[in-house]
Design a protein around this nucleic acid. Structure first.
Length: 493
RNA sequence: GCAGCCGUAGCUCAGUUGGUUAGAGCACCAGAUUGUGGAUCUGGGGGUCCCCCGUUCGAGCCGGGGCGGCUGUACCA
């Protein structure tokens, strides 16, 4: 194969590989989340990566652009299949399919990869992991309140106490406001969506930017123009007043909301639900962690009632060095319509979703004990000095493994210097050396690489370094395990 | 999708008005050291200068088109 024919090795755009440190940290974090969810009585369930496209939502691939937003392909029988883009739609399918066998309300959690065919960015991938918990078949807002409290407990257990707030709002309240400014009814569905998305950009654009988006439109810094919702100034003021209705206490906030939605039955119903949730939260002692906040709307269309967002409040620096709040690591809400798409009867449901990799980077930033202290030692490496003695070396490896010590035989073909470099790169605590000299005496040489690295700092010349053989000692073969355990104990007690 | 900026070694980048065989640092491999990870020194491998077309005696450099990347914006059911 000529050089020009070689394939360029590169991960596809928006997809990432994960190294051992990341895997270990993620594993510990997921275990902690799972533990919390189990404590609340939720049970695990896993669904497939691929679903029939029509089960995922209203999206249907057309011949021109079958992969818009979602990765899709056609089965043998020409049915369209898609990679799941979240864990909620597949859960709705699962519950509907197994409806008769499942206990109602059905409480479950699941972690898994989801895929979105969108433009990737920093911290935004086309494959990422979510961790969801959902209660299906409970119409009571007690289910919503519980999910929010569980989200708070989860973040507490991950070492983020005092650094987050779970924000709750209600879509019905927003609907009430929109109704009040004459955007009720089917014919205004498109415009309502524009308003919703404009509000969702509050944190990024600020009230001024959102004001433009609600009105004539906004020109961004590259000169690109975004068409707005075209609302009248008075209506814009009313929508913005809604997003700013948060008071010092939940009671104040709800009182403000009642003002804004006055006259709309749906809006008042939403305010009542929020009052109920606030009472449950106060009763359980969560009012410092879970708060009513009307600025939360969530971009998704399928939410029908309470919506939530988990916001981290500590500051991080953006790429220009400016301090910004870390922001959202998860969200959710009530989706009473989703399961019902598959069933003759309506099925209420509510759930919460954690963005796993985003939460992980947050934990790394605050140096949570969950993800720190993961620098476990590499394997003990048994060097190959004489190729005809591999069986003997392999025996040493087995002996160490039987004693519960991570160990391996050097399997490459290079000389001793390269073997030492290999062990160094693997972060081995020590290597085992047995050449003909040691073998004749029935001994093995053990070199403590961590101690040796420290000693190296004081030695300038290579000749001296070689002669000193720092942190190296001999023991008889039967003492191998004890000696290695001593070395490990010295560094990883 | 739209707009702006940018494409030279694995990485970060130099490269003169357009002029021989395109460079540096880091990383990698080897030797100095028959059997010792660091440091130092010496050597080595590695390039479609994003691609195509054009201008020119001559293009990494100039022009056009394409592709890719980054950033903003839109979309994100």
């Amino acid at each position: 194969m000529s050089k020009a024919d070689k394939i360029k090795a590169r991960a596809p755009r928006g997809f990432a590989d994960r190294g051992p440190a990341d895997l270990a940290a993620t594993e510990k974090m997921l275990a902690k989340i799972r533990e919390t969810y189990e404590l609340y009585g939720f049970e695990g369930v896993e669904t497939s990566f691929v679903e029939y496209t029509d089960a995922l939502g209203k999206f249907l691939p057309d011949q021109d652009r079958p992969n818009e937003g979602v990765f899709s392909f056609q089965d043998d029988d020409e049915q369209w299949l898609s990679l799941r883009y979240d864990l909620t739609a597949p859960l709705a399918r699962y519950v509907a399919e197994n409806f008769d066998a499942l206990p109602k309300p059905y409480r479950s959690y699941r972690a898994g990869w989801v895929f979105r065919n969108e433009k990737p960015g920093p911290g935004r991938f086309r494959q990422f992991m979510q961790f969801d918990a959902d209660t299906v078949g409970a119409a009571s807002v007690a289910a919503d309140a519980e999910i929010c409290m569980m989200a708070a407990d989860t973040l507490d257990n991950l070492g983020l106490s005092g650094q987050f707030v779970i924000k709750i709002n209600n879509r019905k309240v927003l609907d009430g406001v929109l109704e009040a400014i004459g955007l009720g009814g089917e014919e205004h569905a498109g415009q309502r969506l524009v308003v919703l998305r404009a509000i969702d950009k509050l944190d990024r654009l600020g009230p001024e930017g959102v004001k433009l988006l609600l009105g004539p439109g906004r020109k961004d810094e590259s000169g690109d123009f975004t068409k707005g919702a075209g609302l009248e100034p008075a209506d814009i003021a009313r929508v913005l007043a809604f997003t700013e209705a948060k008071g010092d206490t939940n009671a104040d906030t709800i009182a403000n909301l009642r003002q804004v939605v006055r006259g709309s039955a749906r809006g008042e119903e939403g305010a009542n639900e929020l009052a109920e949730i606030a009472a449950l939260i106060a009763e359980a002692g969560y009012e410092a962690r879970v708060m009513i906040d009307p600025s939360v709307v969530r971009g998704l269309e399928y939410y029908t009632g309470p919506v939530y967002e988990a916001d981290l409040t500590f500051q991080v620096q953006d790429e220009d060095g400016r301090p910004v709040r870390f922001g959202s690591v998860g969200g959710g809400g009530r989706y009473d319509g989703l399961v019902g798409r598959f069933r003759p009867e309506p099925v209420p449901a509510t759930g919460f979703s954690i963005g796993v990799s985003r939460l992980l980077s947050a934990l790394q930033m605050v140096k949570s004990p969950i993800v720190s202290g993961n620098d476990k030692p590499g394997p003990v490496v048994v060097l190959v000095m004489d190729k005809d003695q591999i069986a003997a070396y392999q025996r040493m490896v087995s002996t160490l493994r039987k004693a519960g010590i991570r160990a391996e035989l050097y399997l490459g073909s290079s000389g001793m210097k390269a073997q030492m470099k290999y062990a160094d790169k693997r972060q081995s605590p020590c290597v085992i050396i047995q050449g003909s000299n040691e073998r004749e005496r029935g001994e093995v040489e053990i070199k403590d690489l961590i101690e040796g690295a420290k000693a190296a700092e004081a030695i300038a010349s290579n000749a001296e370094w070689k002669a000193a053989r720092p942190a190296q000692f001999s023991v008889t073969e039967d003492k191998l395990v004890d000696a290695v355990k001593d070395v490990l104990a010295r560094h990883f007690a």
